[in-house]
């Protein structure tokens, strides 16, 4: 039904007009509430002039402290709540997570989280470059932690990377890095992650992803994994149009939506009545 017809109807029956208006208000209001994180980003008034250290502290206090605690020790929940991954409470302690974790969570737009108890999803960063720098430095200053890693994928071997990736990662992320589903989590695509983000994710183990120590995956091996993920982002599609590198599902769609449609069309054309 088109909008104008809807309106005509609504106008036609005065009794219903009120109901339509109400419904529209609720729908619109609901949509807006859904689209905006309940906590908007809080910024200090004269952000440009502030030194980084002060900016970091203020941004933290305004946007992060409610879940991670004013001193970065985390906030246990008052009411018993289902934890996110291994986390119980509103947010984990940030002492000792270092620049590495802060860089990952801020650059993938995961923090600040909308609300605890929900899997963080990747999106564009919610802070600008200077703000991220300030926050990362601030979180790093909360305790001794690892710095932002600097991987060298060019030193890695793609073959070793493919092997390591199928061994450690493909069970969740799919061989071509296209993502998938786990009980209790959506597994994101890895193709869009930068080399540093991949290195960070492997060392952090965000949400349900396991954390890999240097003993399990050395930095050298990590370089290879990243080299492979880069290949997966632009794979060798010798066979033509890659249709998403997911295998059978898009192939079935091509079969039905292209081949079958074409061939039935041919049948209809060729089968036009002669008699």
């Amino acid at each position: 039904m088109t909008l104008s017809r809807l309106r005509a109807r609504a106008l036609g029956r005065p009794g219903r007009r009120v109901i339509w208006a109400l419904a529209a208000t609720v729908a619109l209001g609901g949509g807006v509430a859904e689209a905006q994180p309940p906590i908007g980003i809080v910024r200090p008034a004269h952000e440009q002039g502030q030194p980084l250290s002060l900016l970091g502290r203020e941004l933290y206090a305004g946007n992060c402290a409610s879940c991670h605690g004013i001193d970065g020790r985390g906030v246990g929940s008052l009411a018993p709540q289902r934890g996110v991954g291994a986390v119980k409470g509103l947010g984990p302690s940030l002492r000792g997570v270092g620049a590495l974790a802060a860089d990952f969570y801020l650059r993938t737009g995961r923090m600040p989280l909308e609300r605890s108890g929900k899997q963080a999803s990747r999106q564009g960063p919610q802070f600008n470059e200077r703000e991220i720098e300030a926050l990362v430095a601030y979180v790093a200053s909360l305790g001794q932690g690892p710095p932002v890693p600097q991987p060298h994928p060019e030193r890695g071997s793609v073959a070793a990377g493919l092997h390591l990736f199928t061994e450690h990662c493909a069970g969740c992320h799919q061989v071509a890095g296209e993502g998938g589903v786990l009980t209790g989590a959506r597994v994101p695509l890895v193709k869009h992650s930068s080399p540093a983000q991949i290195a960070e994710a492997v060392r952090i183990g965000p949400f349900l992803m396991p954390r890999f120590s240097r003993r399990q995956i050395s930095d050298r091996q990590l370089d290879s994994i990243i080299a492979y993920v880069r290949l997966a982002d632009a794979p060798v599609d010798r066979g033509g149009w890659g249709i998403g590198h997911l295998g059978p599902i898009p192939e079935g769609m091509v079969t039905w939506l292209i081949a079958v449609v074409l061939l039935v069309g041919v049948c209809v054309l060729l089968g036009r009545r002669l008699s």
Partner: peptide
């Protein structure tokens, strides 16, 4: 793109033909 099979390996979202 899938690589060879070894029983210890696996991938998410493995599907048969349609």
């Amino acid at each position: 793109q899938w690589g060879p099979y070894t029983p210890s390996l696996g991938t998410n979202g493995a599907q048969p033909d349609w």
